[in-house]
């Protein structure tokens, strides 16, 4: 951890104002940033503590949805009765992530901004274009069991580690941001970016931007949804593959579908074509498999992670099948 200054923001405006100085970072839960600072991967010169700003509420929106405060803790969000009832896949996704202690600390906004768990990103003795642009990608040709099969570039094959974000992607959440130039809304699909030739940039946020809330639209797929996480141990591990699935059924036919994958790409992965392939089809394994194949049509494996392609297909089929069978289940 390098030397840094510490200041507590007393309002969102104050926070955004202070963030003008280069090399400063907001800290709220701290669970990812302090970890990265200790590993010498993040080196902010100043921390602005936003953890006490009144952005921790979960409120109804005019459109019948829910506004999740950026500073609401993951645990409080997951256990919120409205979230559990109306957005069970979100509750389930949050509870599939990290540990109870970390969920008590980590905020929703911070979760959006957590960085990859790629081994090379964390080890400053190794090359990583995300950490040190131009140094090369260690994972390509290296140890890449946990890496991307979709949307990667020849500069970076890291994956986004969040569970919560996968559900938010499936739900078409909107990220509310306050920046130096005022407030704006970012649709979830546009919030995270693919690595391309700038893997050091994870999101479309601009310097000084403060995430203030995440808005959930009214439609929560509460009747038919699930979150399925597959990992190397039963708990407290990042996803090899995860699936957020939501269906709207008309009898046995799919009327609307949402499908987002975690652990496979630099961002939560959604594919409109795969979802379109489900609509009007019977809610049955064959349709689910066909949609999975659409979603995975461009999947590309590396030395150690090619298994993820087949695993993802099987996971999609399983998650959609569970979603179709399920009625408003909210507990993991």
């Amino acid at each position: 951890m390098r030397s840094f200054t510490y200041a507590r923001a007393d309002s969102a405006a104050d926070a955004v104002g202070r963030a003008g100085a280069s090399g400063t970072a907001f800290v709220a839960g701290g669970t990812n940033l302090l970890d990265l600072m200790k590993a010498d991967v993040a080196r902010p010169g100043g921390l602005i503590d936003i953890s006490r700003l009144p952005l921790d509420r979960i409120e109804e929106t005019a459109g019948g949805g829910l506004r999740l405060g950026a500073l609401a803790r993951n645990a409080d969000t997951a256990y919120d009765e409205r979230v559990q009832t109306r957005y069970p896949m979100l509750s389930k996704a949050i509870l599939a992530g990290a540990s109870a202690q970390l969920r008590n600390m980590a905020t929703n906004g911070g979760n959006l901004l957590q960085r990859t768990r790629c081994y090379y990103f964390y080890d400053t003795a190794t090359p990583c274009n995300k950490r040190e642009p131009g140094s090369g990608c260690g994972a390509i040709g290296g140890v890449n069991r946990i890496h991307a099969i979709l949307g990667a570039s020849d500069q970076c094959i890291a994956v986004h580690p969040s569970d919560l974000c996968v559900a938010l992607a499936a739900l078409d959440a909107v990220v509310q941001v306050r920046g130096p130039d005022g407030e704006r809304s970012i649709p979830f699909a546009e919030f995270h970016r693919l690595p391309g030739d700038r893997p050091e940039i994870d999101t479309t946020l601009r310097p000084g931007d403060l995430v203030t809330s995440i808005d959930l639209p009214a439609k929560g797929f509460a009747e038919h949804s699930t979150y399925l996480k597959i990992r190397d141990r039963a708990s407290y591990a990042f996803a090899l593959v995860s699936v957020a699935a939501g269906l709207e059924l008309d009898g046995g036919t799919v009327r609307d579908a949402r499908l987002a994958l975690g652990g496979v790409a630099h961002k939560p992965w959604r594919d409109p074509e795969a979802e379109a392939a489900l609509i009007g089809k019977p809610a049955a394994p064959d349709s689910f498999r066909a949609a999975a194949r659409v979603l995975l049509r461009d999947a590309k494996g590396h030395e150690h992670n090619s298994f993820k392609i087949e695993l993802a297909e099987r996971a999609i089929v399983r998650a959609l099948s569970e979603a179709a069978d399920r009625k408003g289940a909210s507990h993991p």
Binding site: Y6, V27, S51
Partner: peptide
Amino acid sequence: GACTVLVDGRRINACLTLAAM
């Protein structure tokens, strides 16, 4: 989790928060 303590009654990892926070 070896550093788990209760802050205002809730369990957290004491290693990932600054004392000042």
